[in-house]
């Protein structure tokens, strides 16, 4: 058996899972089960939010290790479900390694994705329907839709101008949201600055980071849980900072 290929395959699966936003225990468990299915005695898998390490012993007793660094990523539930399903199939009936490698490598390619326009629609629709939940009327719903779409454009296409720094990106989006909310209320489209701003900020809020953090802590991965908690707090501060800057800026006009 080719141990190098086996190692690469398990590391790739771990990487894909991590990239889709899976929990730490799922990443570790899936890669380990896959290696068990190929008859390895005691494979070791270790993951933290931005790194996956897989280590196996060859029959001669020579340890080999592969590490994959995971770049900043969003949440992609479709990819997560596909990885999970594929891992289950591979473990139930392990095909030749090359075939399995090709299947794992093909995961991100033939996955259905929403077009950028569809995602943008999501960025508009979500804040729009949060407005009534926070006590806004129809006017606020329309303004929140516009603000949310602007934030979506900023996040989807603005990467070139505001860089890939998550903290800064959130702060800029949040500033844009509060500035635009004030402008829309000033020209009479919206009714309440607070409602429109809060509805728009809901798309930036670290709900995912928070839920993931608690999940890791409950699963016993305290280290990853703490780093995700820090992430959630940082995002929340970025939102507050951005909104404050936006309102201060809006106050001048």
């Amino acid at each position: 058996m080719d141990y190098d290929k086996l190692l690469n395959m398990a590391a790739e699966l771990g990487y894909q899972l991590m990239y889709s936003g899976a929990e730490i225990y799922r990443v570790e468990e899936s890669a380990r089960r896959l290696l068990y299915a190929y008859g390895l005695e005691n494979p070791e898998v270790f993951a933290i939010p931005n790194c996956v390490i897989v280590s196996v012993d060859t029959p001669e007793g020579h340890p080999i290790t592969r590490m994959r660094r995971v770049p900043p990523h969003g949440t992609d539930i479709e990819l997560l479900e596909r990885c999970n399903g594929l891992c289950r199939r591979l473990c139930a009936a392990p095909p030749p390694i090359e075939e399995a490698q090709a299947l794992i490598a093909a995961l991100p390619e033939d996955e259905p994705r929403y077009s950028p326009r569809g995602v943008l629609l999501g960025y508009g629709v979500a804040p729009a329907f949060f407005a009534p939940l926070f006590g806004g009327g129809l006017a606020d719903l329309v303004s929140a839709f516009l603000c949310g779409s602007a934030v979506g454009v900023c996040l989807l296409y603005g990467g070139r101008f505001i860089g890939a720094n998550g903290f800064f990106r959130t702060a800029v989006s949040s500033a844009l949201a509060s500035l635009l909310a004030m402008a829309l209320v000033a020209v009479g489209v919206g009714e309440s600055v607070d409602v429109v701003t809060i509805s728009t900020l809901m798309v930036l809020v670290p709900g995912v980071a928070l839920t993931n953090a608690m999940r890791e802590i409950m699963a016993g991965d305290t280290f990853s849980g703490l780093s995700r908690t820090a992430d959630a707090i940082l995002v929340a501060s970025a939102i507050a900072l951005g909104a404050a800057a936006g309102q201060a800026l809006g106050g001048f006009f």
Binding site: G74, G124, V125
Partner: peptide
């Protein structure tokens, strides 16, 4: 009305998280 709004808002979020 609030529940319908929550439903629609969550469907909006599924577009961002690539849920099909």
């Amino acid at each position: 009305v609030p529940c319908v709004c929550a439903f629609l808002a969550c469907v909006g979020f599924t577009l961002m998280f690539n849920i099909h």
